[in-house]
Amino acid sequence: MFFRRKFPGQATLLLTLLICESVLAADADREAGKLAYNQCIGCHSFAYHRTGPKHCNLIGRIAGTAKNFEYSDAMHISRVVWSRETLNDFLASPLTYMPGTSMGFIGVKNSDQRMNLVEYLVHQSESDQCDP
């Protein structure tokens, strides 16, 4: 109540974000997401950096900040924080969302497939194999 009274706009925004995140997660099919992740394995893995940065501990990370990886300037200065929502937006069209990224990838155009992929990324990036 205090928060809502003191920061009404922020409370609404926070609630909206939480609802969006929940909706995105609720309908996702993680197994289908694992299949969709095949589109990423040319450049990424969870455990270690490759042509692209590793995906372990991705959620909550500020884009362009994983240690020991050389990012594009665009990614480095973006200040995007990876969440279900930002991943969903980015993966729809990386080069549109972040002009200047090195990720030469057309994007996952199918929204269901993208939602499944995001759910798989979220789950795996926080799994045991990704313990810091």
């Binding site: 095949n38 394995i41 040319g42 030469g104 990838f105 057309i106």
Partner: peptide, 18 residues
Amino acid sequence: AGLERGAVSAYANAIPVF
């Protein structure tokens, strides 16, 4: 085989953005 499969996918997704 995994690397080659990944490479196919990477090129398939890069071709439309040149």
